[in-house]
Design a protein around this nucleic acid. Sequence first.
DNA 1: AAAGTGATCATG
DNA 2: ATGATCACTTTG
Length: 183
Amino acid sequence: MCLINIAEGDNMELKKVGTEIFLLPAVELAPKLLGKLLCRCVDGNIIKARITEAEAYSGEEDTACHAHKGKTPRAGILWRRGGTSYVYLCYGMHEMFNVVSGLEDEPGAVLIRGVTGYSGPGRVTKAMKIDRSLNGDDMTVSDRLWVEDDGTEYKYHTSPRVGIDYATEEYRLKPWRFIADIN
DNA sequence: AAAGTGATCATG
DNA sequence: ATGATCACTTTG
């Protein structure tokens, strides 16, 4: 509906994001993703929307991170190289989309919680038609799912992460939710 | 405030 | 095999 569509021939300079920033630790990657364009191609149609909110999940020691339970079948993806997509089903109905962060064997990911027009991780995936069939895609080479940088940078503020009451207090309180200030 | 929905993981 | 839990959303 209100997704951003960049017309062909637009002179805005777009650059597909390669591996460099994805190799950063999750807590550094998450704010850098704010303002970037999340791009999805389905049935020949390209959908682009700007990322406005993201959360970092970082390392086995982070009790909120799926990597905390070790290399389980689902979470094993988190040990892959940054730029891999991690999509899983939550509450039986919501697909959650994350970008794996860091070097191979440094588990972590950034949950995309909002894009322009859509706030909430379940709404983001619904709007962009992202589901588990994209799990494991390398976003630096995929033609189904990738990230572009047009130079936009947002100021942002932080808060604790949402929906992780099960984590220990130390990690429950980490200000690893990054919210763009759009004025 | 509480249901809805099914995969995932730990337990047995 | 069974059961609790869950990076949520919608409805009342």
